[in-house]
Design a protein around this nucleic acid. Sequence first.
DNA 1: ACACAATAGTTATAGTATAACATATCAGTT
DNA 2: AACTGATATGTTATACTATAACTATTGTGT
Lengths: 165, 165
Amino acid sequence: MDNTPLAFSAHNHQHCVSDALQAAVNLCAERGARLTPLRKQVLELIWQSHKPLGAYALIDLLAAESTRQVAPPTVYRALDFLLEQKLIHRIGALNAFIGCPHPDHSHASHFLLCDECGRAEEIHSKTVSDSIQQAAGEAGFAVVSQSLEVFGLCPDCRADAPSHE
Amino acid sequence: MDNTPLAFSAHNHQHCVSDALQAAVNLCAERGARLTPLRKQVLELIWQSHKPLGAYALIDLLAAESTRQVAPPTVYRALDFLLEQKLIHRIGALNAFIGCPHPDHSHASHFLLCDECGRAEEIHSKTVSDSIQQAAGEAGFAVVSQSLEVFGLCPDCRADAPSHE
DNA sequence: ACACAATAGTTATAGTATAACATATCAGTT
DNA sequence: AACTGATATGTTATACTATAACTATTGTGT
């Protein structure tokens, strides 16, 4: 069994982008939320990278794709919408955004972030979530949201630069 | 047994500040690191709040305490030193800094952050750390550092605004 | 067509962080 | 005490991230 997660494995990324976009279209339709062309374009640009994308990188990409004006508030509003709909996550340590592969069910933001190649992988471990809930509960703390950012080396970058060399 | 952590409990905070400063002095002496007056002053200001303190708030406090110039690089360099010595942590989601109560042994940055009052409490749960290590390991990921930021309501703020009212 | 709400454009500015270079201080040596 | 190299701080400018406030446009239901 191969436990290596998607972002750190070879895969057809264009397929994974189009799946994510289709899922977003369906979800927003169900919710009565308007996934406008701009919002969809921003979501697509974010998905096209497995690396978290900064707001200003996004602005540059939008400017390159069209002749339209794209000032910061425009892209931040689209990002706010996508965050509200849980279609993306914000990576605090990087001031950057990345697509959420499971926008249909609410969950915490838990990421593995490679220091070397910059790729991000969302993890879903019930053990991790439960242990966090329990630790917070023992402190009398009522959890609303949680963000875990684990930095280190992904499998590929470990292989490229082993510590024993 | 009362599990309520320190920041969320009544305590003599001035005592806890002076303890932290003394510990920092001792640690830096052992390590041959120079805890200069500026660095010590920054550390003290950070400790005097249980709330994470932003760099520019710190600049204002420094300016208020002396006639000396305190431009951003000055305070950011002091913060960098304190981070290197693990005397403080950075809370990514808040762009802010807070004192580390256990600078003597390296550990992850795991915090409970109250949305209501802004206080922060560092937690140390072996279960949490281990489960994160294990989840990363299963993904073939080599952990270098980790940051957990749990948002919600601290015991006091829960009591002040119960959900059933 | 009309009216209201939601979205997007526009201008300006606030907030966070660092680059690059000049000056001052410290610790060890002569 | 003066010399030297390393470390720390001061200074100026600027880059990067994000939002406020207002205007214009687009969408939806009547």
